[in-house]
Design a binder for these strands. Structure first.
Length: 404
DNA sequence: CCTCCACAGGAAGCGCAGGAGT
DNA sequence: ACTCCTGCGCTTCCTGTGGAGG
């Protein structure tokens, strides 16, 4: 073996991980602990497709990381395997609505599964819809379309698309389509058109959150698979489970913590993951999340974020929408930009609140009006760091520092 | 008890960019 | 070249509201 081989080999061979991919969010294990009941229910509902019949539509509720997506994907995979064995045609399509959050993109995504090429924009929604129908109408297949996180779609664009999809069968001659809707919010179904509601809710399934013990049952087998023997301190898995259990029993969060903790240990070329790595992982996850959001903010979004940062005294204090808007106007006028309206700034603040970058609550000060009181939810430095990636923000922050 | 502040947040719509079809 | 489509950031106009002060 030459020197180079040795280098590559030792770089390739991690001291911590054996199969890191087992911890990635889209990995579906062979066994899903504490979800037997749910798997059975989904399987029973979808089973008629093996006889070429259209299965009932299913609606699934549950908070993030409760195994909704995993269960659905798992059952669909098994179903498909079973179908090919029996010579039945079943097609399944999985679309995550959060990543494709407009009706057009969702349809475009579905279309792409059928090998219909659709442009990023330019076609009418109806046209994409028609192309899909034209393409699949005559194929003798049961299609199961899964829409993950539909709440995002309904909240922003209403239920038109859902309504059309539930009625798609009327326009198909030989193929059949059934839908699986997955949502985080229990309130969603109430806001739906009654027609959509009854048709989509043929079967309904609620996924309860995991508790710390159940999270451990999920983590242990995966940790065994993912890590080299003895790479984990004993208290690592319980710690990740406990932290995630506090976070409404989110299994994905628990797996992320475990994986990132491992990556930190690996980066530092240690062969053992310790408690402190988990704590660091927690900070790192938060930093990445904040930085991703701030980076993709439009210019005025960043300026508003900056104004919040300054008016709240870098997180030590509270500020109202009005105070933030005043500060924003000052910043904008020194830069010579055109300012956006209060309405829009209020909207941006609302969005930042929803994203959890800041935390605000609406209060009434009686005579002195009703407003939103805001402070930074998390760490100011994380936000400053993310903002400084934009040269304009960087300059303003330097300027601001001089005044102090 | 009523008023009226300082906004929240819904609805409609505008102008532009990116792209399709004709 | 021209029309038509959507997404995005934004504006305009709007109605709604908890409670301190009169």
């Amino acid at each position: 073996m030459t020197n180079l081989d040795e280098i590559f080999n030792s770089a390739y061979k991690s001291k911590v991980f054996r199969r890191r991919e087992v911890l990635l969010p889209d990995y579906i294990p062979e066994i899903l602990p504490h979800r037997d009941k749910e798997i059975k229910k989904v399987a029973l509902t979808l089973a008629p497709s093996l006889r070429g019949e259209r299965p009932s539509n299913i609606f699934i509720y549950g908070l993030t990381g409760t195994g909704k997506t995993a269960v659905v994907k798992y059952v669909l995979r098994k179903l498909k395997e079973n179908a090919t064995g029996k010579g039945v045609n079943i097609g399944y399509i999985y679309v995550n609505v959060r990543h494709r959050e407009t009706p057009y993109r969702i349809l475009a995504d579905i279309a792409e599964h059928f090998n219909i090429r659709v442009p990023f924009t330019g076609l009418s929604i109806g046209e994409v819809y028609n192309r899909i129908i034209r393409k699949i109408s005559n194929i003798e297949t049961v299609f199961i379309i899964t829409l993950d996180e539909v709440d995002f779609l309904v909240k922003k664009y209403g239920d038109d698309l859902l309504y059309n999809l539930t009625r798609i069968n009327e326009q198909l001659s030989r193929s059949k389509v059934s839908l699986i809707g997955i949502t985080n919010s229990l309130k969603l179904i109430e806001s739906l058109d009654p027609r959509v509601k009854s048709s989509l809710n043929e079967e309904e399934l609620v996924f309860p959150p995991y508790d710390a013990k159940q999270l451990q049952d999920i983590l242990y087998p995966r940790a065994m698979d993912a890590f080299v023997e003895n790479a984990l301190d004993e208290d690592i898995v319980p710690l990740c489970s406990a932290l995630a259990a506090r976070d409404h029993g989110d299994a994905r969060r628990a797996l992320d913590l475990l994986r990132i903790a491992g990556e930190i240990a690996e980066r530092e070329e240690r062969d053992r993951v310790v408690k402190d790595d988990v704590m660091k992982a927690r900070i790192e996850i938060e930093r990445d999340r904040v930085s991703d959001i701030i980076k993709t903010l439009p210019l005025h979004g960043k300026l508003v974020m900056l104004s919040i940062l300054i008016t709240t005294g870098y997180g030590k204090d509270y500020a109202t929408t009005g105070e933030i808007y005043d500060k924003y106007k000052k910043i904008v006028s020194t830069l010579g930009f055109e300012e956006i309206t209060l309405r829009r700034v209020s909207g941006i603040i609302g969005e930042l609140d929803m994203l959890g970058i800041i935390s605000g609550r609406i209060i009434s000060r009686g005579r002195y009006g009703k407003t939103r009181v805001i402070n930074l939810g998390g760490d100011a430095n994380t936000i400053i760091e993310a903002l400084r990636e934009d040269p304009i923000m960087d300059e303003i922050l330097d300027e601001e520092a001089k005044w102090k």
